[in-house]
Amino acid sequence: MENIDSNGSGLSHPYNSLIKMRGIWKTYQMGNEQLHALREVSFDVRRGEYLAIIGPSGSGKSTLMNLIGCLDTPTKGEYWINGEQVAKMSDDELARIRNKEIGFVFQTFNLLARATALHNVELPLIYAGIGSSERHDKAVDALNSVELGDRISHRPNELSGGQRQRVAIARALVNHPSILLADEPTGALDTHTSAEIMTLFEKLHEEGNTIIVVTHEAEVAERAHRVITIRDGEIEKDEKIR
């Protein structure tokens, strides 16, 4: 955790710090009780890192993932992503950040059932306001990069689990986001396919993508270069393993 706050003001964002969280709290009101899902969480992620976030269920790792992915805002604390303070952003501003900076990969793929692989991959580009021919080219490129160039007009129900997850990864990558954020990406896949997907992640990492994987599976976490362990809403461990 060196060299992230060189002038001590807490407001600098060095070039290589892509994510910077400072004193993040997330508190839910449950009747009369306050439930602290995250307490005072601070960490940085540099460009090009391959990070796994692990923790038992109820540890707060899903809450953390939602905050990293700008799906939610913290109750307290500061969060910069690529130099932009997102902790206090409105819904629509967050939508813009998600569209530009984050590529999501979900456990259950979350593909549109009636749409082709190509159209699923085009989706983030539609909301980025990109015209149809450029959209088509970019989506085809993304599908090629996950080796599904020959499946562009297939619908999800015509694809295997591994292929569906690769479509989802292509969708996550198509807008060239800063971060590829995966939530239990192998949770719905068999061992063999899981290995395939993890190999793909490694390849994407080598190509320079920043990858954050949230998981409870040790084998998945082991593939990362850095592991953050969350327990009871706090960072228990933050270690480089490679």
């Binding site: 629509d92 569209n99 979350n110 549109l112 989706l123 983030p124 909301y127 969708r171 807008n175």
Partner: peptide, 8 residues
């Protein structure tokens, strides 16, 4: 999903 990928 649409919101996650950037729909306002």
């Amino acid at each position: 999903l649409r919101k996650a990928v950037g729909a306002r």
